[in-house]
């Protein structure tokens, strides 16, 4: 890994951390646990295309670990880890397997994020009760995924002619 690449990863990890912190200050006014815009996922989408899968995973891991440390909440770590890596895995597969735009990848990632978080809740609570939240969370993820997809599309459009996006 070159210094340049490492620096890009570090900057994106810091950006993702800032996004997730920003988000935690403005919760969506919905009575659903774990519902959020998923702004940090924009960074994951961007890193996935601009840098690669390994880099996106590293950025995600740094963001999740530092985020839990800053929030001082070890329980939240499992939710963020399972949610974040479910989203990354889903977006990796969707990017490979189907002719999708950044919108489809983003929506798939948002939905997978919610599934991962519910999975974490199932593990922690040892009961099926959290599954009742999944339908509503999935519906919300259609909108939040499309919104973050839109922002990612704007970002890619703006960055298309920079060095970062050259093969």
């Amino acid at each position: 890994m070159t210094t340049e690449r490492l620096t890009r990863c570090a900057v994106l990890a810091a950006l993702a951390l800032a996004f997730s912190y920003l988000e935690s200050m403005f919760p969506l006014p919905l009575p659903l646990p774990g519902v959020k815009l998923g702004l940090a996922n924009i960074v994951t989408v961007f890193a996935l295309y601009a840098l690669g899968a390994a880099e996106a995973a590293a950025i995600l891991l740094v963001r999740v670990l530092l985020g839990a440390m800053f929030a001082g909440n070890a329980t939240a770590l499992l939710y963020s880890l399972l949610g974040g890596f479910s989203a990354l895995l889903a977006m990796l597969l969707l990017r490979r397997c189907a002719p999708l735009s950044v919108y489809g990848v983003s929506v798939g990632g948002a939905a997978a994020h919610n599934c991962g978080q519910i999975g974490a809740a199932l593990l922690l609570l040892g009961s099926a009760a959290p599954l009742a939240y999944l339908p509503a969370l999935l519906l919300v993820s259609l909108f939040t995924g499309a919104l973050t997809g839109f922002i990612a599309a704007l970002l890619f459009r703006a960055m298309a002619n920079t060095n970062l996006m050259k093969p």
């Binding site: 295309y49 990017r95 999708l100 735009s101 489809g104 990848v105 960055m159």
Partner: peptide, 16 residues
């Protein structure tokens, strides 16, 4: 280039 498709496709509708 590494820029993905930026306009919604039919595949996106399938994901949704």
């Amino acid at each position: 280039t590494k820029v993905p498709e930026l306009k919604p496709t039919r595949g996106d509708a399938l994901v949704a």
